[in-house]
Design a protein around this nucleic acid. Structure first.
Length: 855
DNA sequence: GACCTGCTGCGGTTTG
């Protein structure tokens, strides 16, 4: 028995709503039993579209029929509320309930006595349901699964876990309908296929009429806006004025400390706002966060400063304005944040960018252009991660067991279409015997064949497995110790992993030499060198996306053309600007008038002083040029390169170049990177012929060189820790008695060593290496960048003073080893040098500088 | 006058 479509209309009419076209489209597809992906912004009525469709398929009666997956516990309760609305009309017998990690045990018990017809849950909780011996009894009648915020899950192992669970459910109910809800993605078709697998899926685009506005808060004095920096202190007053003009504003920052700082600034400038502004990020206690979210919902807060912790969730917020402080880093991220405003059908979404340095003014134009053109990043599902498979095999063995045909079921999950029988059998044997090296340890004999079915005979193993379900592994930090003992503090493992013995870095105000990492402690000794500081790379998880980086190159190129034209027209001595029509640059001058329009953008007008300074002190590179700047200072010999390819790629490029350059003539390089370029600083005069002739940029044996230039063994070992945890090799302890991080690290390090020695064919080792290359080093992006650079003309400029492009890189490096006061002094000297070089009277020097750079 | 750095997300045993 299914609900009458007329009743759907009646329910909507009752609310005073008329269904949108896309909602009807979803209903009819679902009534026909189809699966699909609904692409729509939040607050567009997508929840109702899919929920009403699910009810049309309802077989009224007891038993679980609809599963609704959400990536965040906090969204579950909201979703239950939203789903309950139409129930009295359409399915009065139905119950909707949430089940996540924070569901009280009394509620769980009640659910298990009589399952609700619809359950809102997380991917992890669904996997836990699959570990129940009665999994098939509980889940066998599920005919519809909705995966909310699929774009959030798709690219991660959490998404793979969802795919495996769906494969299981599909086995039990071949007519299973799966619907994903997703925000904008560059690869919606692929995203849908990952979810619906072989089914004939329908991609529905909801409410595309929603208008989008991306504008920028301009710095008060454009000519004096900082070339470097990420905090945005100069934007305090303009931001506060924006907040004052709106009822409620969400202020997004990129990092937690920045959120805290901005929160303090707001209170300093407007003490009367105490109690009306708040801060929200992932390190805050959940109770504080809940208070802030409730305040937002109630409309009692004027502004909240947040990190991406507020990207999702808290639906139906009365947020009027969204500000983004600093780079949005990606188009999808910007759109997501824009979507937090105008959160109702028909209302405009608006996000206002707040640049924190002059290059971000250019980036703002690029971001708007890419966003309006729909150049949105793609997300790829991980390719057959074996750690997730191993976990799933144990899960299924617990949940009623399996026999030989599980291989086909697993391969029906799109992430595993390429899984070979040998790989599957390896995973199976690994669950059975712990692979070639752990045969003697019963703890790793997790599954066994009993009466032709694989199951988990040991109750202790079963219990521990249920405690370990999931793929999220928290970041770890490593203590930094003197060789003689004594802890200096903790730093991210990812940082230590990139160090080679002998590397010098700065930490806790000291210059330290990295000696070795052992048992996950970084041992150091004091270094007598004053330079050689390697920057702190942090997580480096937020590089400028490929799409945004490309748009920045585009906008810069147009600005170069337009500025060249306008400077010449204004009769200014074109001293600083290499003649755009000169023979060295056979430019497509036809595009100049087009390019001139880019300067009409208000952000570009504000950025013009910086761009002119760059042109005079150095050069604005054309798209087919790779700008290399060199400078001598008391620090040594600087080489700046600007591929505009995002910081992860620049880390790899900088390491690679330093390594290749030092291969000929040994030298010690300090490295500094940002999203636009990188700096190599050598103490001794370097031999740059390989850079000049381009041979250093040759693809060559890229993989081998990258591996050699980085401490890839450390990287892989760190990666392996996650894999060991997901694959269930490492047990993190019972709730209330968790094992220390050190214990966990020691044991996963042990596994890594044992496998390498006694089980080198262990496929989890290979997975660790693959993940390092593809995710951390972004090898594909790196080789793309290298290919592009090799095809560009290198233009080398000798700098007399730091250029606007170079200054942020120098600051980045200096910051690591100077106190705030020292840095301030140093910066003042650097900037003064740039300003002197820019004086008209010294135009001759600048001209010389630029002239010397012509290739 | 220019400086502050890197996000998010989940799960939960114990049974003589």
């Amino acid at each position: 028995m299914t609900a009458d479509p007329a009743r759907l209309e009646a329910w909507f009419a009752n609310q005073g709503w008329t269904p949108f076209g896309f909602q009807r489209e979803v209903w009819s597809a679902m009534a026909a039993g189809r699966s699909g992906l609904l692409h729509a912004t939040t607050g567009s009525g997508k929840t109702f579209a899919v929920w009403m469709g699910a009810l049309q398929r309802a077989c009224l009666g007891p038993g679980l029929q609809v599963l609704w997956l959400t990536p965040m516990r906090a969204l579950a309760a909201d979703t239950v509320r939203a789903l309950q609305g139409p129930l009295p009309v359409l399915a009065p017998d139905w119950q909707v309930a949430a089940r996540t990690g924070d569901t009280p045990s009394a509620d769980r018990a009640r659910q298990e006595r009589r399952w609700p017809q619809a359950l809102v849950t997380t991917p992890e909780s669904l996997s836990l349901l699959l570990t129940r011996a009665d999994a098939r009894d509980v889940l066998g009648a599920v005919h519809t699964v909705v995966v909310d915020e699929w774009h959030e899950l798709l690219g991660s192992k959490r998404g793979v876990q969802v795919q495996l669970a769906l494969a299981r459910l599909r086995r039990w109910c071949p007519t299973l309908a799966v619907w994903g809800l997703s925000a904008t993605l560059g690869n919606l078709d692929e995203a849908m296929r990952a979810l619906v697998a072989d089914a004939d899926g329908l991609l529905v685009r909801g409410r595309i009429d929603k208008s989008l506005r991306i504008d920028t808060v301009l710095p008060p004095a454009a000519g004096r806006f900082s070339w470097a920096g990420h905090l945005g202190a100069q934007m305090r007053v303009p931001v506060i004025e924006e907040i004052e003009r709106a009822s409620t504003t969400l202020v997004f920052t990129n990092v937690r400390s920045q959120a805290e700082i901005w929160y303090q600034w707001l209170l300093q400038e407007r003490p009367q706002w105490a109690g009306e502004v708040a801060v929200h990020h992932g390190s805050l206690d959940p109770s504080v966060r809940a208070w802030v979210e409730a305040g937002l919902k109630a409309g009692s807060l004027k502004a909240v400063v947040a990190t991406s912790s507020l990207d999702l969730g808290v639906d139906f917020l009365p947020v009027e304005r969204v500000l983004q402080i600093g780079s949005a880093k990606g188009v999808a991220r910007l759109l997501q944040r824009a979507g937090r405003s105008g959160h109702a059908p028909g209302r405009e979404s608006r996000v206002t960018l707040v640049p924190t340095n002059t290059l971000e003014l250019v980036e703002a134009v690029a971001a708007r252009r890419a966003a309006l053109a729909g150049r949105v990043e793609s997300r790829q599902s991980p390719d057959k991660p074996l750690d997730v498979l191993v976990q799933h095999l144990v899960t299924v063995a617990l949940g009623g067991g399996f026999d030989d045909d599980l291989y086909d079921e697993v391969r029906s999950a799109p992430a595993y279409v390429g899984l070979t029988r040998a790989e599957f059998d390896w995973a199976l044997r690994f669950c059975e015997r712990g692979g070639d090296s752990l045969g003697a340890y019963p703890d790793y004999h997790r599954i066994a064949l009993v009466d032709g079915r694989w199951c988990v005979p040991d109750r202790g193993i079963a219990r521990r497995h249920r405690l370990q379900v999931g793929t999220i592994v928290a970041d770890a930090s490593m203590p930094v110790k003197w060789l003689g003992g004594g802890v200096l503090g903790h730093v991210e493992e990812s940082f230590i992993a990139r160090l080679k013995p002998g590397d010098v870095f700065v930490f806790a105000g000291r210059v330290l030499e990295f000696v070795r990492a052992r048992d996950l402690v970084a041992y150091v000794r004091a270094s007598s060198r004053s330079r050689g500081a390697i920057p702190y790379w942090g997580g480096g998880r937020m590089p400028l996306s490929t799409e945004l980086a490309e748009a920045v190159r585009e906008v810069l190129d147009e600005a170069r053309l337009a500025l060249g034209v306008s400077v010449a027209r204004d009769g200014l001595d074109a001293s600083g600007i290499p003649d755009p029509a000169g023979p060295a640059q056979p430019l497509a001058l036809a595009s100049a008038p087009q390019a001139a329009t880019v300067l009409a953008e208000p952000e570009m007008q504000a950025a013009t002083p910086m761009l002119q300074a760059q042109a005079r002190l150095s050069r604005l590179p054309a798209r087919d040029e790779l700008l290399v700047e060199r400078m001598r200072s008391r620090e040594g010999h600087h080489v700046f390169v600007y591929p505009f390819a995002g910081r992860n790629v620049h880390i790899g490029l900088a390491q690679l170049l330093a390594w290749r350059l030092a291969r000929g003539v040994p030298n010690t390089w300090s490295i500094s990177v940002n999203d636009h370029g990188f700096e190599l600083l050598a103490a001794r005069e370097p031999d740059l012929r390989a850079l000049d002739d381009g041979s250093v940029l040759a693809a060559g044996d890229l993989m081998a060189d990258v591996l050699a230039s980085l401490n890839s063994g450390e990287l892989a070992q760190r990666r392996f820790r996650e894999i060991a945890r997901v694959a269930g090799l490492v047990f993190s302890g019972y709730p209330g008695a968790p094992k220390s991080l050190k214990q966990l690290q020691a044991s996963s390090g042990l596994f890594y060593e044992v496998f390498r020695k006694y089980d080198p064919a262990n496929l989890l080792l290979g997975q660790a290496e693959q993940e390092v290359l593809s995710q951390e080093l972004e090898l594909q992006r790196l080789s793309d960048a290298l290919a592009r650079m090799a095809g560009q003309r290198r233009v080398t400029v000798e700098l007399k003073a730091p250029s606007p492009f170079a200054l942020p890189l120098m600051v980045e490096r200096l910051r690591e080893r100077l106190s705030t006061e020292q840095l301030k002094d140093r910066l003042e000297r650097l900037v003064a040098a740039s300003e002197r070089a820019l004086q008209p009277a010294r135009g001759r020097r600048a001209r010389e500088a630029v002239g010397a750079g012509q290739v």
